[in-house]
Design a protein around this nucleic acid. Structure first.
Lengths: 212, 212
DNA sequence: TATTTTGTGTTACAGAAATCACATAACAAC
DNA sequence: GTTGTTATGTGATTTCTGTAACACAAAATA
């Protein structure tokens, strides 16, 4: 299949979670406009996304939730081999994300945590062992980890991102304020300060008025 | 001035920080291609963003860093009254963000923290006092808080977002997995699981190959 | 003073994403 | 059957965002 648009993939992730909730409530079919309402988007967008992944709803009954969840799962995480995740840098943010992941029902499995602080190495964080950053490559290869969450202090970000790609990690989500450029891996950057300052701009009274 | 594109505002936030770093290193002018390189974007994009905010560089010397920082500051946070921020829900993620903000040099000031846990109310978190969520409106009005970071458990998200807007908050950044719909305030949503699953999709070996 | 170099400011274009508009099909009611 | 209703599937259009192209001005060169 062709590569899906980024925004569609993001929505698929959200669809799956609300669909799972509906399924748990005993609902087995859903209309595009119902799903749309749950996520505050338009029904057309829902239908377009579902069309893109090749699922087809039955007229008059909507979309079969169970099939749809399975299909989204195959697309996002589990084809032949399900993907494994590591957190690199287990400071405040790293630990918060770790707890967040553990408390959520994503299919992705957190397999390792890395740090350079000797007091942290060897400890278990919510059930996940912390390794020395120096053994990144060894552990990543051994465990088959393909996704890395980067939450190290900014001065290490570049160097460690290179190590990560070198170790065979295929996707990095960078929570560092340093902007990176990778060859051979998918990169997603999220900058907390940027998104806060963005909100600050649009929330300025003078600007807020312009937002219709 | 007209409202700036969202992406431009995001980049302005990043420009400011790298410019500040340059200034601290004693650099006083910078070329568009230098700034571009620091953020891994194109020089054209830098020039257009700077054009949009009405700053103009001097030929042969580039852009005056100090003026540019000041201008970006006026645009994003401090016009007449600088904006104030509150964190609502001081769990793991809330505390991590709090520390993150305190350790960064943004102009936005964290003025209050809210929670409903009696053991937390009255405590100081990295220097910021935690108030009872019931006094949200009172404190927000008294302190003039305009921006809220929402990090409560999902089941409270909707209810509390309504309280926030009602209290006069103009911009909310929602770290909850629940998607919201607000009237009268700017909303930015960030879903940790979604962005992780997005990376998972594009990092799948079969897809990664397609990324040129 | 003419010419080349260099970097900005701006317009025109291309690509991605969201939205519109509508054809189509299943079902219900009569 | 026929007709009306409702919800899906999708080509066409618009909107948003990034990129390429280029005109222009100052400095360096000769």
């Amino acid at each position: 299949m062709k590569l899906l648009p980024e925004r569609t993939v993001e929505r698929l992730s959200k669809y799956r979670r609300v669909l799972q909730r509906e399924l748990d409530n005993g609902v087995d079919h859903i209309y595009s406009h119902e799903l749309a309402k749950l996520l505050h988007i338009t029904p057309v967008q829902v239908r377009r996304d579902i069309m893109l992944i090749g699922h087809t709803g039955t007229l008059r009954k909507g979309y079969g939730i169970e099939n749809l969840i399975t299909l989204i799962g195959e697309i996002i995480d589990c084809n032949s081999t399900s993907q494994k995740v590591a957190i690199i840098g287990i400071g405040n943010l790293g630990q918060a994300l770790l707890d967040y992941l553990n408390s959520s029902q994503t299919k992705l499995q957190l397999n390792a945590v890395f740090d350079n602080n000797p007091e942290k190495i060897g400890n278990s964080y919510s059930g996940t062992l912390c390794y020395n950053i120096d053994s990144l490559k060894k552990i990543v290869e051994r465990e088959g980890i393909t996704i890395g969450i980067l939450t190290v202090p900014p001065q290490y970000a570049k160097e460690i991102s290179i190590m990560m790609v070198d170790a065979g990690i295929l996707g990095i989500i960078n929570y560092t304020p340093v902007s990176l450029k990778l060859e051979g891996a998918f990169l997603e950057e999220y900058d907390v300060i940027t998104s806060l300052e963005k909100v600050a701009y649009f929330a300025k009274p003078r600007n807020a008025k312009m937002l219709s």
